[in-house]
């Protein structure tokens, strides 16, 4: 596997191999000195055309735990308009000697385009509304390891709630959870669903109350305030009342149901209860797992993915 651009491009075997390798990375991360020399001498460049401190730090921490060198290229949206084309930017960085690009962009497809302009590996760290494959990987790892049923989610129902239309997290997770055998149900106002999803392996329901007591995983998406300005929902209050995780809804969850959120949370909007009061909350586990999942991806694309990294500390 040279690149990780989209969950759609993975086979089930590749997905489960990444999940299993993540277990190994979790073990490395738990050591007193959480660092192995697996990627020593390799250079990982984070190229973030859209700000995302959390994702960037997660990738850079992952790279450092594998002893890779890191460099960071932060592009304000304005400098994109200063005349340098996307291609020029990538070719320039590539010439400095990069083994893997970690790319985030507000427009769908940019990581795909980058693969045309460099020989390096490319990892999609989120492109537009399209894909965020490492998020899906860490989410699947968090969920499967919580349930303790290996990589199998057969018989489990995952509800993804909120702004599916504008969500790369949702697009990646619909696919990833389905590949592991789960049933995925989308819960959102019609304005926040994609225009046409007849061929998606999911069903959609109109109300969270309809499914809240039957689901095994409640995946809350971030509700962005600008969606209200675009008249996609009448108000955040109304959104919260119809789709937010209120105390009443939390009380109706199954006792072993998990609650996930990709962060950053809008407290009082999609999540009204304090997650600290939710026994099923895995929101901090997601962040922790994120580093290990990204170690697993970096290792896989940069090593050819065959041999697990050497166990010894540096």
């Amino acid at each position: 596997m040279k690149h990780l651009l989209s969950i759609d491009e993975l086979t089930v075997e590749q997905l489960t191999a990444l999940l299993d390798l993540t277990d190994h990375m979790v073990e490395i991360s738990s050591r007193p000195v959480p660092k192995v020399p697996a990627l020593r001498g390799r250079t990982v460049a984070s190229v973030f055309f859209e700000d995302s401190t959390r994702t960037r730090l997660s990738f850079e921490t992952a790279a450092k735990r594998l002893s890779a060198d890191t460099m960071t290229f932060n592009v304000g949206t304005s400098s994109v308009n200063k005349g340098e084309s996307l291609r020029d930017t990538i070719e320039t960085l590539s010439a400095m000697g990069v083994d893997a690009f970690v790319v985030r962009h507000k427009s769908s497809g940019v990581p795909h385009m980058v693969t045309e302009w460099t020989d390096a590996s490319v990892i999609n760290a989120g492109d537009g509304w399209h894909q965020h494959p490492t998020q899906a990987l860490l989410d699947c790892h968090t969920v499967t390891r919580s349930f303790g049923t290996g990589n199998d989610l057969t018989g489990r129902t995952v509800a993804i709630v909120g702004d599916v239309k504008h969500s790369r997290v949702a697009r990646s997770n619909v696919r990833a959870f389905t590949m592991l055998g789960a049933d995925v149900v989308l819960v959102a106002p019609r304005t926040l669903l994609p225009p046409e999803f007849i061929d998606w392996p999911i069903r959609a329901v109109d109300s969270l109350d309809e499914v809240i007591s039957d689901i095994d995983v409640l995946y809350l998406l971030r509700m962005q305030r600008e969606r209200m300005d675009a008249a996609l929902v009448p108000s955040l209050g109304e959104y919260s009342a119809r789709f937010g995780l209120t105390r009443q809804r939390a009380d109706r969850l199954k006792s072993d149901a998990l609650v996930l959120h990709p962060g950053p949370m809008n407290r009082g909007v999609e999540i009204v209860v304090d997650p600290a009061d939710l026994p099923g909350s895995r929101i901090l586990d997601q962040v922790r797992t994120g580093v290990s999942a990204r170690m697993s991806v970096l290792y896989t694309v940069l090593s050819g993915g065959s041999v697990p990294p050497a166990g010894g500390a540096e």
Binding site: S108, P194, E196, F197, W200
Partner: peptide, 17 residues
């Protein structure tokens, strides 16, 4: 960016109805 329909929904590209 592209025609609004099944394809733009999957690609996450803003649809052109």
């Amino acid at each position: 960016v592209m025609h609004e329909g099944a394809c733009c929904s999957t690609l996450g590209l803003p649809g052109w109805p």
